[in-house]
Computed example of a mutant assay.
Amino acid sequence: MSGHFWLTDEQMGRLRPFFPKCRGKPRVDDRRVLSGIIYVKKNGLQWKDAPAAYGPAKTLYNRFVCWSRMGVFAKIFVELAQPGANGATIMIDSTHVKAHRTAASLFKRGTRPRAIGRTKGGLNSKLHMVCDGLGRPLTFFLSPGQMSDAKGAAALLSTLPCAKVLLADKGYDADWLREALEIAACIPARRGRKNPARHDRKLYKQRHRIENLFARLKDWRRIATRYDRCGELFLSAICIAATVLFWL
């Protein structure tokens, strides 16, 4: 089992309160199955290529899909992702995620949202995220790749955590967004604006932390490249990665 990923007893203790209750036949070992799901997502494997140490691949896939659609992984992230001591500052940004050919069909089948669009880079999705001052994710959502940063921020306004200042890049420099914010904004002005707003350059240097956040998330190969056709399944994969990397 050398090189395999295993959740520790302490990590399982934090996760177990959010698991669905067993009804009838006892569930297969939660630690083994969840560790297997994390291993597959981190290393970009097909489900059938999961190591035998984690049990049948079908069990891993069924547990991931079932709990994703039940909202278990999303609930775990929401409950564990709480701003720390540096909660006075939050940051917002977005990144593109390339859609693999197995997920990149634009034809929508069924009622489940896909969140895949077309840009100059091809078919992709866009991950809009808010993090705290330490670069830990707090809230996010997925959109088609062609959605602008400002529109993504508008969708996140109602879920912004309590803070004193919001850091963002030039893509969020819009008068309506500044007016809609209930907190101070540290956003550099776009080139050519007639009345550019000032920003704290020293504070703005901290914005690299959200870029580091995206880099760490994309170390997981099934986050860097989207293989899941359903948007909710890909969001669950992001919830798992964000929880393991930053909140366990």
Rank of each mutant, 00 (worst) to 15 (best):
residue 47 W to C: 11
residue 92 I to L: 15
residue 44 G to L: 09
residue 94 S to L: 00
residue 22 C to S: 15
residue 84 G to T: 07
residue 45 L to F: 04
residue 87 G to A: 14
residue 98 K to P: 02
residue 87 G to Q: 14
residue 44 G to Y: 06
residue 39 Y to C: 04
residue 18 F to L: 07
residue 53 A to C: 06
residue 109 R to D: 05
residue 89 T to W: 04
residue 101 R to K: 14
residue 22 C to Y: 04
residue 35 S to K: 03
residue 58 K to M: 13
residue 41 K to R: 03
residue 79 E to D: 13
residue 41 K to T: 09
residue 99 A to D: 12
residue 28 V to I: 11
residue 88 A to P: 00
residue 83 P to I: 03
residue 105 S to G: 10
residue 71 G to K: 11
residue 49 D to A: 15
residue 57 A to T: 04
residue 56 P to M: 09
residue 35 S to Y: 05
residue 90 I to G: 01
residue 79 E to R: 12
residue 28 V to G: 03
residue 22 C to Q: 14
residue 25 K to S: 12
residue 96 H to T: 00
residue 42 K to M: 13
residue 69 R to T: 02
residue 55 G to M: 06
residue 96 H to Y: 07
residue 44 G to F: 07
residue 98 K to E: 12
residue 18 F to Y: 14
residue 58 K to N: 12
residue 41 K to M: 14
residue 95 T to S: 15
residue 37 I to Q: 08
residue 96 H to S: 02
residue 48 K to H: 12
residue 49 D to W: 12
residue 32 R to H: 02
residue 46 Q to V: 00
residue 100 H to S: 13
residue 82 Q to V: 14
residue 77 F to A: 03
residue 92 I to A: 14
residue 110 G to D: 13
residue 54 Y to T: 00
residue 26 P to V: 06
residue 29 D to R: 14
residue 107 F to G: 00
residue 30 D to S: 13
residue 104 A to E: 07
residue 93 D to Y: 11
residue 66 C to S: 13
residue 18 F to W: 11
residue 65 V to N: 07
residue 91 M to L: 08
residue 100 H to M: 12
residue 60 L to H: 06
residue 31 R to M: 09
residue 41 K to Y: 04
residue 27 R to F: 10
residue 52 A to F: 04
residue 105 S to T: 14
residue 46 Q to F: 03
residue 91 M to P: 02
residue 84 G to N: 08
residue 103 A to Y: 05
residue 60 L to V: 05
residue 46 Q to S: 05
